[in-house]
């Protein structure tokens, strides 16, 4: 029961790796695809959590209980699929809105990052000025 199918494990690893890679991209469309792929990975993981052996459908009277597949992870995966589907649609609409408003779909820099960069630029400018002053004093 507790042995994991190697093929499934490799597929899962691939899905998670691809998902996280896409999540780190700057284009919103890729981020969105990353979330979709991660969602697939998670759903597959739920399936795998139910045990790897193939079972009969979990219908009472259809099969002896010990040969039935575990229905709980399937129910959970079904719920999760619906939720990820709905949220993906919402995210698509949001991405379209962003594209409408801004004309591109690049993820913006962090607010604090921008503040620090501005501060850095100001400081560098001030440094240059004092250096120039010192230079001019030296030549005088």
């Amino acid at each position: 029961m507790n042995t994991v199918n190697l093929t499934m494990a490799i597929v899962l690893g691939g899905l998670y790796a691809t998902g996280f890679y896409l999540l780190l991209q700057r284009s919103l469309m890729r981020v969105l695809l990353g979330i979709v792929i991660l969602g697939h990975g998670a759903n597959l993981l739920l399936q795998l959590a139910g045990g790897s052996q193939a079972g009969r459908p979990p219908m009472l009277g259809d099969a002896p209980i010990e040969r039935m597949a575990d229905p709980l992870p399937q129910a959970m995966a079904l719920t999760a699929i619906v939720i990820t589907f709905a949220l993906t649609t919402f995210l698509l609409a949001l991405a379209y809105r962003a594209w409408q408003l801004l004309g591109h779909d690049e993820v913006q820099d962090d607010v604090e990052d921008r503040r620090i960069r501005r501060l850095e630029a100001e400081l560098a400018e001030a440094d240059e000025e004092t250096e120039r002053e010192l230079d001019s004093e030296a030549t005088r």
Binding site: G19, A42, L46, M76
Partner: peptide, 11 residues
């Protein structure tokens, strides 16, 4: 998605 992964592993 991480939450879902966690649930899968817990189960």
């Amino acid at each position: 998605v991480l939450f879902l992964t966690m649930i899968g592993l817990v189960y």
